[in-house]
Nucleic acid binder design. Structure first.
Lengths: 167, 167
DNA sequence: TATTGTTATACTCTATAACTATA
DNA sequence: TATAGTTATAGAGTATAACAATA
């Protein structure tokens, strides 16, 4: 805390550090998604499709349920998304022999290859979007966000069942 | 490829620090927006409406154009949003006598009072959402995000006009 | 009966273009 | 002519419930 933040009231202090961190997060998330959509459209991918491919490459084959949980996308919405990716031969779906209800989703060679192109486009977007931060600061930001993500994607098993407040 | 994924690409290093910071940002932004929507619905506000009120309280009266730029929302979409807020007497619109094309938007007393309730609900959401971070880390995250926001909401005056790539 | 994937549907959010009134 | 606000519309994202196949 050098010269930045002096007074520390409940939430905000400076007029510049505008508002709630959550609203800031929401706003920037929308903004960067828009940038991604623009940069990825020549490749033929949407942001969510790209996220799905990246996840499948990173973590390997998994069920649709697991993929949906990882991407924080509802299982019903995942179906159409994977249909499109499968139609372009970027992923494959096959029945899990151990539990025939499950579809094992896997990224294809074509999908993996396409991700090289994606990496370049995404890196350009991010270099522009995070231009205000140096390399260390970006790493710090990513680390903080990753920790939030890891704690948040446990969507409280108690709250999901039906305790009191739903949503 | 046993279990841990040992290969290290350009950006990430740890297997845990999964992917691009931008995609992480996009995903968390969606997640926190969902939480806000749930927490604010009993109050009768949507996340974007809440953001508009918070901004108007923080920065005072301004034109719709200025508000739209601050919220990163298109002027055409702002109209219906403000119509709803005005119907509930949470904001007021009046012509700017100096330039009668402009509407000066201002938060009302009722709107300001409602924000007290909002603050409590939002604080609860954020305490839960950022539970993995301590107070200093939250401040650091907010500071980093605020800097990105300040640099990003200058949406490149050259790119907007019509250089080459639009979007 | 519970779970996985699927389908259908409605609702919100976003993006775009055309219109008006003012400048 | 250019700008501020408005309107209308199409598209993308999201949430919900109901269903079939399998456990």
């Amino acid at each position: 805390m050098t010269g930045a933040i002096a007074e520390t009231t409940e939430t905000c202090s400076e007029p510049e550090l505008l508002q709630h961190a959550g609203f800031l997060l929401a706003q920037l998330g929308r903004a960067v998604t828009r940038q991604y959509r623009c940069a990825l459209s020549p490749i033929g991918l949407k942001p969510r499709e790209t996220q799905a491919l990246l996840r499948l490459r990173a973590d390997g084959a998994m069920s649709q349920q697991a993929l949906g949980a990882a991407l924080d996308i509802d299982a019903s919405n995942l179906v159409a998304l994977l249909n499109d990716l499968e139609a372009d031969s970027l992923i494959s779906r096959r029945r899990d022999p151990e539990d025939r209800r499950r579809h094992v989703v896997e990224i294809s060679k074509r999908g993996t290859k396409l991700l090289d192109e994606v990496e370049r486009a995404a890196a350009e977007v991010e270099d522009r979007f995070f231009a205000a931060l140096d390399q260390d600061e970006r790493a710090a930001l990513q680390g903080l966000l990753a920790r939030v993500a890891r704690s948040a994607d446990v969507p409280s098993p108690a709250e999901m069942s039906g305790d009191g407040a739903n949503c």
